[in-house]
Design a protein around this nucleic acid. Sequence first.
DNA 1: GTGGTCTAGACCACC
DNA 2: GTGGTCTAGACCACA
Lengths: 121, 121, 121, 121
Amino acid sequence: MIVLDYSAKTPIFEQIKEQIIFLVQKGVFLPNVRLPSIRALAAQLGVNVNTVKHAYQVLEESDIIYSELGKGFFVAQNAADNKKVKGEALEVVRAAVSSALSMGVKKEELFNLIEALSENI
Amino acid sequence: MIVLDYSAKTPIFEQIKEQIIFLVQKGVFLPNVRLPSIRALAAQLGVNVNTVKHAYQVLEESDIIYSELGKGFFVAQNAADNKKVKGEALEVVRAAVSSALSMGVKKEELFNLIEALSENI
Amino acid sequence: MIVLDYSAKTPIFEQIKEQIIFLVQKGVFLPNVRLPSIRALAAQLGVNVNTVKHAYQVLEESDIIYSELGKGFFVAQNAADNKKVKGEALEVVRAAVSSALSMGVKKEELFNLIEALSENI
Amino acid sequence: MIVLDYSAKTPIFEQIKEQIIFLVQKGVFLPNVRLPSIRALAAQLGVNVNTVKHAYQVLEESDIIYSELGKGFFVAQNAADNKKVKGEALEVVRAAVSSALSMGVKKEELFNLIEALSENI
DNA sequence: GTGGTCTAGACCACC
DNA sequence: GTGGTCTAGACCACA
């Protein structure tokens, strides 16, 4: 379900985080459902335990998931509509768009880009 | 002319690079005009020499500027309409937009964002 | 009679322990009365047997309850006024208060907090 | 300046965090002042780099300090009066006091405890 | 030099 | 079994 791109500049833990958010978004992971354990996911992805742990910690700090000691991680109640996460994502877009515009990229190009990308979701 | 934001997550060298491109874009720096020397700009910005050096190197690799040994750095011929730079900027936007969309941000929000940002240029 | 809060950071066995002490305190469990069996309580609370076992062990070590092999656990003689337990509880409060004070919390805030909490008992 | 208690149940990173907050509180560390680097503090305390890193990360998430890549960590603007930190500290006290009261500790004992502790700050 | 990411291994408390 | 803490080491990007 989760695919990693080691050649990407995005850190592994970030990729794991994003894809879990995506799965929660899509309703694949429903509220209060248990996520794969840190160890299990690490083994499955061929990645270190600490890397998955980092991803889970960040997700927990964003209130996407919560942990219960000795039990595991679970999807939070309103995880699918998390304003914090969307706000951060928008901020990243804002920076990128702002930079692109200042370099002479036309806004029409950006509109086309978004239109094209939103069809592949 | 160049303003740095140390609190931003964008690296300093990147900010320098972007703002030089912006100035070239705007016609403030015309082709074959000499840029401030690495040391001078570093002193002016209160930044490490290596940081400016890095920015200039990246600009040179993108064919925005060129260097003449012992003379300094100069704005390249067609610097104002550099496809490589725009392509890279678009790629960054693509990644950010793609990530935002996968996290449930609506494309209308992105359109509004771009519209708002493009008015401030 | 015992209510667990899985979202709390307090371990489950600790919650069970505290609430049994509370019930003993209140006179709901009188000396030499038999407590529910480990298995029964575990089943009732929907909790692992080892968790209840752990709680009972800790209670036994604090002389709140005692066990008779093959018969079960019973409330100890002077369980309602157990100095060891109160001492430990005070030590926890001491650490928390000490930490809060060092972080700039005013003692008036702490007084108010205690006043408010002691009315809900 | 920072003293660790390895025998305490409080994690090392937590102790570092608390003592830095205390130093900020006391005005020893003023806003925008640079903290010792992760490596330097780790060496000084005889502790692993990751442990200090963890402490700094938590402090950063609480807006007590901020980081600048390649430069270090700095005390945040209004670090000395951080509501988030005080709120969390109060919550810990609340839990401890609530537990102590339910175990039969008298509120007068708690008042005396706080009075005594607040004189040693 | 700095912080940021990642790995590989350990030990602990909890369930 | 689970997550939480800690260690010891590596490599990278940035200043």
